[in-house]
């Protein structure tokens, strides 16, 4: 089985789809000859040609705008937004146009586009290279928002996204590109080499959008996490000796609420983790849905562990990051409750 890090897995997904389907085009800032600032498209232009993988002007609204038009004309564009922090100029094109085209035309026109963009902190990116804007997109009807936490899922989910006939926002936790991250920036960096989820089959396979990944099957507490926080959750639960039921949500919209409901009804306790700011974060949606469905099974108040309601600071990156201590406190609190 080939070993890949997350970048390689994403590149492999693009390569597989571009080889299979000449309608798949890849473009964005610096993605062509150079292969992208994170190297996710390295070599694709050489393999598939200038017309299939190319550079765009620095114009996120333009990038998503042409993607919509291309998709309406039968192509399967995969657009890269260099950092999620730069996605806001494209917000109108995503929220008002891509997500609504099918609805407002009653299926006459559709926009099967995939937008890839790196999210999250952990690389000293400060306010403009660290954001997790997922909640701004899960609020949009007509759009799907997904986020893998490992190379295996990244490849399978990206292929599924490209094949999906609806617009999909594919968020890439950049701290996980090279290896799992357990929340301690001072610990030696781990790579995906040798990791089970770094084993990525060659060729075509999909990981269906809409299904959470069930990581462990403990009965003490349910932990709902996605992206980087999946790994922090695993480490903290293990260190605390908890038999946790951890769900890597993977797909935020659509949400695998059945898996969540089943788990919380079993454990009676629920902790929700995300890196994004707290107020109106996706955790609020999760907490609301859990209490709607599992109120009488709950043994303790639902806990949210999140970034603070500040911009993502530079020097104070690890003070902002919802690391092991914050997660541990929440787990202790919910276990005592």
């Amino acid at each position: 089985m080939p070993q890949m890090n997350m970048i390689e897995a994403i590149r492999d997904a693009l390569d597989v789809k571009m080889s299979q389907d000449s309608d798949v085009l890849v473009f964005g800032e610096d993605v062509g000859y150079f292969g992208g600032v994170f190297r996710a498209t390295a070599g694709l232009q050489e393999t598939h040609g200038l017309h299939r993988c190319f550079d765009t002007p620095i114009s996120e609204g333009g990038i998503v705008g042409i993607a919509i038009g291309m998709a309406a004309n039968g192509l399967r564009p995969v657009a890269e937004i260099q950092f999620a922090d730069y996605i806001y100029p494209a917000y109108d094109q995503i929220a008002s146009e891509a997500a609504r085209l099918r609805y407002r035309s009653n299926g006459d026109f559709t926009a099967p586009i995939t937008i890839r963009t790196p999210v999250g902190g952990g690389i000293y990116g400060g306010t403009t290279h660290s954001q997790s804007p997922e909640a701004l997109f899960t609020h949009i009807a007509g759009l799907k928002t997904i986020i893998p936490s490992n190379p295996y899922d990244a490849k399978g989910m990206l292929i599924d996204a490209i094949e999906d006939n609806d617009p999909v926002l594919f968020l890439e936790p950049k701290r996980l590109y090279n290896g799992p991250f357990y929340g301690d920036p001072h610990a030696p960096a781990k790579t995906w080499r040798g990791h089970e989820l770094g084993e990525v089959p060659s060729g075509h396979y999909t990981v269906p959008i809409g299904e959470a990944r069930k990581i462990s099957k403990g009965g003490d507490v349910t932990i709902l996490a996605y992206g980087t926080m999946v790994w922090v959750a695993q480490k903290v639960a293990e260190d605390m000796g908890l038999e946790a039921d951890i769900l890597d949500l993977r797909s935020l919209l659509p949400l695998d609420i059945e898996a969540i409901e089943k788990s919380v009804k079993k454990t009676g306790r629920c902790v929700i983790l995300h890196e994004a700011t707290r107020t109106s974060g996706f955790g609020a949606e999760l907490a609301a849905q859990v209490q709607e469905r599992c109120f009488y099974a709950l043994e303790a108040p639902i806990q949210r562990v999140t970034g603070w309601d500040t911009p993502y600071p530079h020097a104070q990156e690890w003070a902002y990051f919802p690391g092991p201590k914050r997660v541990g406190n929440a787990l202790r609190s919910v276990m005592e409750g």
């Binding site: 705008g65 042409i66 038009g69 291309m70 004309n73 094109q93």
Partner: peptide, 13 residues
Amino acid sequence: TQLIQGVGWAMAS
């Protein structure tokens, strides 16, 4: 909003 989409449509063409 549709100006740039039309340009994308033309690029695809």
